[in-house]
Simulated assay, not measured.
Amino acid sequence: MLRRLRYLRDMPRFALKIEYDGGPFAGWQRQAQGQKSVQGAIETALSRLEPGPHTIAAAGRTDAGVHATGQVAHCDLTREWDIFRLSEALNHHLKPQPVAVVQIARVPDEFHARFSALERRYTFRLVQRRAPVTHDAGLVWQVQHALDAEAMRQGAAHLVGHHDFTTFRSSICQAKSPVKTLDEITLEDLPYPGGREYRFHLRARSFLHNQVRSIVGTLERVGAGGWQPEDVRSALEARARAACGPVCPPQGLYLTGVGYPHDPFKN
C-alpha cells in the first residue's frame, strides 16, 4: 500500500484550461448511460496518450447544453510531458468534437481544480430581435420582445450579497445549504444586428444547481415588464422555489473563468 501511495505522489499533475460547445453533450460529467460528456471526451483523449483509465476533476460540472470558455480541470499522468506536446496531442485526439484545451500548466500535487478554486465566473447571453439568429444559433437565448436593461439591473441589485437562494435553485440541487454569497452581477447592453444583446456576468465562490439560469430567467421577466424590480427581492425573501420566475434555457450560459489563489496559467 505504501508503495502504491508513493507511486501516486510521483505522478505529475497538470491543470487544463478548456473551452467547449455544450450543445452535443449531456453535460460535463461522465454519464453512466453512455451519453456523450465533455469529461468523457477528454478522458478518452488522455487514454490514447497514456493507456489505462483516467479520471479528471473539474472546477464546475456544467449541465447539458451549457458552454465554457474557461473551464479548468486537472489530471495526473505517469510521466512529465512537454506542455506544448501535451496540448497538441490532446487537441488532436479530441477532434472533431467541439472541445479544445487552450492552455496547460504543470501544477503542484496539492492543486485541485474544484477544491482550490476561490471563485467561478459565468456569463449568460440573451439576444432580443425579431429575426431568428443564425451564426449564434445554439449559443444564445433569443427572445423577440423588447427588454428594459435598467429595470433588469435594478432587479439584479437585490441578489448581490449573502442570501438564502432557495428560490433560485433547482429542486434536485444537492448542495448542503442554499446560503451563498453572490459577489457580483452586472449587465452589458450591446448592439446586435437587428436587435440587442444582453450579457449577464455573475461571480461567486460557488453556485447552486440552476442558480444562474433561474436568476436570468427571472430578470428577463423584469426586463419584459411582467415583474417589477422589487419583485425580485420579494421572490428572494420567499425562500420558495415556486416564487422563482421561469428557468431560462441552457444554450446562453457560459462558464468563463475560475479564480485560484495563484493563477496556474499566468506564466
Rank of each mutant, 00 (worst) to 15 (best):
residue 37 S to E: 12
residue 118 L to T: 10
residue 212 V to I: 05
residue 169 R to F: 02
residue 63 D to T: 03
residue 118 L to A: 15
residue 138 G to Q: 06
residue 1 M to K: 08
residue 245 G to A: 10
residue 232 V to G: 09
residue 181 T to E: 13
residue 255 L to N: 03
residue 266 K to A: 05
residue 39 Q to V: 07
residue 175 A to K: 08
residue 93 H to V: 04
residue 63 D to P: 14
residue 33 Q to S: 10
residue 168 F to K: 01
residue 234 S to F: 11
residue 81 W to P: 00
residue 197 E to Y: 11
residue 80 E to V: 06
residue 156 A to I: 03
residue 127 V to E: 01
residue 155 G to T: 12
residue 237 E to C: 10
residue 242 A to D: 14
residue 121 R to C: 03
residue 107 V to I: 02
residue 140 V to C: 08
residue 258 V to C: 02
residue 189 D to M: 11
residue 234 S to P: 00
residue 40 G to I: 10
residue 28 W to T: 08
residue 119 E to K: 08
residue 203 R to E: 03
residue 247 V to H: 08
residue 52 G to L: 02
residue 43 E to I: 12
residue 119 E to Q: 09
residue 47 S to K: 05
residue 87 S to L: 09
residue 198 Y to P: 02
residue 90 L to E: 07
residue 153 R to P: 09
residue 52 G to A: 00
residue 48 R to G: 05
residue 98 P to F: 10
residue 221 R to C: 14
residue 70 G to A: 05
residue 97 Q to S: 08
residue 108 P to R: 02
residue 264 P to N: 09
residue 26 A to S: 14
residue 141 W to G: 00
residue 128 Q to S: 13
residue 192 Y to S: 01
residue 186 T to R: 13
residue 93 H to S: 07
residue 193 P to G: 15
residue 142 Q to V: 01
residue 252 G to L: 11
residue 35 Q to C: 05
residue 209 H to L: 10
residue 181 T to H: 12
residue 223 G to C: 03
residue 64 A to K: 13
residue 89 A to Q: 03
residue 76 D to F: 12
residue 141 W to A: 03
residue 251 Q to P: 14
residue 41 A to Q: 15
residue 23 G to L: 12
residue 113 A to W: 09
residue 135 H to F: 05
residue 207 F to W: 03
